[in-house]
Design a protein around this nucleic acid. Structure first.
Length: 829
RNA sequence: GGGCGAGUGGCGAAAUCGGUACACGCACAACACUUAAAAUGUUGCAGUCGAAAGACUAUGAGGGUUCGAGUCCCUCCUCGCCCACCA
């Protein structure tokens, strides 16, 4: 048993003093490699999920270092956000104090992991020197027309009388009042025009080395649909209703229109006699939550406006309905209903007894009670009858275009990004409202607009930010006319802060720019990004948008922030449930470190299973790793005690056997070097560790040569940086280092963590012989060691002569012989 | 409802290209050491039958392709994640 705690804290101190992990922007002869993990929110505790993200990722970073890269592996804190404010309201402590206290604690916890982090580059998004640049980026977005103010629907909690962030809406309900359904309320908000980049965001995915499912999620989220806008005129008025459809080929089957309750033309079109009923319906629809309108409500509702529109292709008058299954946010907020070929329209038409006209021939028997939604040959479609759906779409759109009644159109599900938050603990939006001059951006030289000290952090009535009670914000000066004006009191969504933090790591201290061109060039884009899959359509999408926007404004020279991305899995409680305080199934890494040491925890997390899979926590398994490290320590300790080096010897054994076992060991060693390197590279940490175990198990019995001992420690060092450092100094007979003495430069020079990754020799891995599996009718019956040089006829002859084979063949000759060199032979009888 | 994954010993899991299923570890059992326990070490450990050699059965269920399937195809079941009236 080795004293992990003692060894680990000793080396952590020495490394820090020697600035072992300080990263220079340029090192002669080394290529830069930017390795990044998603920075944590400073909740106050580094939980096991953070460990699972950071520890194996650090193993990867260490491999890269040893492979000769100049690796930047920074860490920081996503420090703005709601929990700080809630803690402030609850415990009467300023959000800033709460946050920075947590950061101090977490920094300490992070250091206990023994990662290669360069803490001199620590980003804290709540620092005014950081959010100054967040504000600067807002101004740039504003200048470029990418930030705009608009009335938008937001989540409104009727009980709190406040706007909620999306994250505060749990299953459609207010997080603090689980019985209160959140409703949509329209208020003025700042938005980022992420939709301008919809196409770029889809295109860029292709060349990214990301998990396919993440790319797919982003693609689905952006939700591109290709179709047409079709204009439906309202007779005897100047109005027409545009609808978006992906199936213009079914236009002849459009038997009614449906408007969203929020559609701007609703009031205009309602017939007098329907007015009351329709208004009643709309009011009801507005009272419903988003959840009710989308998920919960299975049965469709709707109401006839009393008005009609004209189908442009056949001049038919069709009724205009209103229903809340049509969303105002998508397409044009109105649809043409083709009940014969759309499930929702079909359901609606059945319920309200609207006519159903088939215009696509399924080409097979199709039940009457089901709409046919696929393509086929067009029927009942005037001059277009007989075309297939694909051609029909084009032809109809062309026809509409000539008549000026429609055009091609592409729609996206993705909506613009609402960044306004009616909250205190975030970066203030650098905008001033002047009665005379209107909306005026703060000038760059005045940045940062700092958060004013406040005492009360509760949202101001009516859903306004707490900043609305700050005098300096209410009584400000207009930058243009110098007259009285008011500052924007909303702060920015914290996802804005985290959309560019990876740029700042490259040049943290820069006061003139968010980062200099040189340093950006030195490090970006990020070569490997490791973090949770839950950010697939949040942070990972927003960051891509930011980089694309900054690039088109001329501030960056690359188009994608993260060249390669990998996700770790989620660790569940030992009960298989999500870890939570209320379930009491939380695993505390601090306690584990105390009990077993960081090296053991790092390694166990790597060993648990496939990295991207996660799974339930099993505390018993740690013992296996703990034992492994104990055995290693014991072995190396004895090596040091017994005048080193000590070579395996066996007086009784013949020279031949010794040579054979030498060769075997040599092969295993080189196989392991290759396997551990390859496995870490592919984030297959579990099998890398099992390879190390196999090597140690067989080498342990035979004893180490000095070279083998060194190689073994190097291979282990990414996983167990503290233990390997200790043993490295021991086998290097460096007592000063063991005792923590010596100059910093000396310590740095002698550390195992500046060593290079061992190289394997392919010649040693290759074997002249292999084990040939002998199958009879596909079943394994025998094995035989043979030379790789043997050709097929020789092998066949050899096999057929074997007694056991003869027994199975029972005098018959195989009808077929399948021979796979280096693997198996299958005799088919 | 749609999309994407996954299902292998008592447990965490290997098997990366269609070629020996269960590597490595945990748990368990026996033995050694010990007055004893823990720790450590050694051995065993998918199931059935068998004294053993070995045979048969096994990768969620059922079918198919193949000399050969955990891996490929079809149907179904279960679980997880994401999206969800997107026209």
């Amino acid at each position: 048993m080795y004293d992990a705690k003692k060894i680990e804290s000793k080396w952590q101190k020495i490394w820090e003093k020697a600035k072992l992990y300080k990263t220079k922007d340029k090192v002669a002869g080394k290529k830069n490699f930017y390795h990044l993990v998603m920075f944590p929110y400073p909740s106050g505790d580094l939980h096991i999920g953070h460990w699972y993200n950071f520890a194996p990722a650090d193993v990867y970073a260490r491999l890269k270092r040893m492979q000769g890269f100049n690796v930047l592996s920074p860490i920081g804190f996503d420090a703005f956000g709601l929990p700080a404010e809630n803690a402030a309201i609850k415990n009467k402590i300023h959000p800033k104090i709460w946050t920075y206290k947590n950061i101090d604690k977490m920094r300490h916890q992070l250091k206990s992991m023994g990662n290669v982090y360069d803490f001199s580059r620590e980003v804290i998004t709540a620092d005014s020197e950081y959010y100054k640049w967040t504000q600067w980026m807002f101004l740039k977005m504003y200048e470029a027309g990418l930030a705009y103010r608009k009335k938008a629907l937001a989540n409104w909690c009727p009980k709190d009388q406040a706007i909620l962030a999306n994250e505060q809406v749990i299953d459609g309900k207010c997080w603090r009042h689980p019985d209160t359904l959140v409703i949509q309320k329209e208020i003025e908000q700042w938005m980022f025009k992420i939709t301008d980049y919809a196409e770029d965001l889809i295109d860029g995915l292709e060349k990214l080395n990301w998990p396919e499912r993440t790319k797919l999620m982003q693609k689905n989220w952006i939700g591109k649909s290709v179709g047409a806008i079709v204009q439906f005129k309202i007779p005897n008025t100047k109005y027409q209703i545009p609808v978006f459809t992906t199936r213009p080929d079914t236009l002849f089957g459009a038997t009614y229109l449906v408007l969203s309750p929020e559609h701007p033309l609703v009031e205009t079109v309602i017939a007098k006699e329907q007015k009351e009923k329709v208004r009643h319906y709309i009011t009801n629809a507005h009272l419903k939550s988003e959840l009710e309108r989308t998920v919960l409500e299975k049965e469709k509702t709707g109401i006839f406006t009393g008005a009609f529109a004209v189908n442009p292709v056949n001049g038919e008058k069709i009724p205009i309905w209103i229903s809340d299954y049509v969303l105002i946010n998508y397409g044009t907020g109105a649809i043409m209903a083709v009940p014969a070929h759309d499930e929702r329209d079909f359901e609606f038409a059945k319920k309200f007894n609207l006519s159903i006209i088939k215009v696509i021939n399924p080409g097979c028997d199709w039940p009457e009670d089901k709409p046919y939604t696929e393509g086929g040959l067009m029927v009942n479609s005037g001059e277009f009858t007989g075309l297939n759906s694909v051609d029909g779409r084009k032809k109809i759109i062309e026809w509409l275009k000539i008549k000026r009644l429609g055009d091609f159109s592409i729609q996206y599900k993705m909506r613009d990004w609402i960044i306004s938050r009616q909250r205190y603990w975030g970066a203030p939006i650098p905008i001033v409202y002047c009665k005379k001059c209107g909306i005026i951006p703060v000038s760059e030289s005045k940045l940062p607009i700092k958060l004013p000290p406040l005492k009360n952090f509760k949202p101001v009535a009516g859903g306004k930010s707490p900043l609305a009670s700050a005098k300096s914000f209410i009584n400000a000066k207009c930058p243009k006319c110098k007259g009285r004006a008011a500052r924007e009191t909303d702060t920015m969504d914290t996802f804005v802060d985290s959309s560019w933090y990876f740029l700042r790591y490259a040049d943290l201290k820069n006061k003139k720019q968010f980062a200099s061109k040189d340093k950006l060039k030195a490090w970006l884009p990020v070569d490997m990004y490791v973090g949770g899959a839950e950010h697939a359509v949040l942070h990972l999408l927003y960051s891509r948008f930011f980089v694309k926007a900054l690039k088109s404004m001329g501030h960056l020279e690359f188009t994608e922030p993260f060249t390669a991305l990998r996700h770790q899995g989620i660790i569940l409680g030992s009960d298989g449930q999500k870890m939570s305080k209320s379930r009491g199934n939380i695993v505390d890494p601090d306690e584990l470190v105390k009990k077993y040491g960081a090296d053991t925890i790092r390694m166990y997390l790597c060993f648990m299973g496939e990295y991207s899979q996660g799974g339930p926590w099993n505390s018993k398994g740690i013992l296996g790793i703990k034992r492994f490290l104990d055995r290693i320590y014991a072995k190396f300790f004895s090596l040091q005690e017994m005048s080193y080096p000590l070579r395996r010897s066996s007086s009784a054994a013949s020279r031949d056997t010794i040579l054979k076992s030498e060769e075997k060991l040599q092969r295993l060693l080189h196989q392991t070097i290759k396997k551990v390197g390859d496995d870490i590279e592919n984030l297959r940490f579990n099998t890398a560790i099992s390879a190390l175990m196999i090597l140690f198990n067989s080498i342990e019995k035979e004893n180490f040569s000095k070279d083998e001992a060194k190689i073994f420690l190097k291979l282990l060092s990414p996983f167990a940086p503290h233990l390997t450092e200790e043993l490295w100094q021991r086998i290097g007979n460096n007592p000063d280092a063991i005792k923590g003495r010596g100059y910093d430069q000396e310590r740095r020079r002698k550390s195992i963590h500046i060593e290079t990754w061992p190289e394997y020799n392919a010649k040693f891995i290759e074997e002249e012989e292999y084990e040939l599996v002998i199958q009879i009718n596909g079943k394994m019956r025998d094995k035989i060691k043979i030379s790789k040089k043997l050709e097929r006829p020789e092998v066949e002859k050899l096999i057929l002569e074997r007694e056991i084979v003869k027994k199975y063949l029972d005098g018959k000759f195989p009808q077929k012989i399948i021979f796979i060199p280096n693997r198996l032979i299958n005799l088919v009888v």
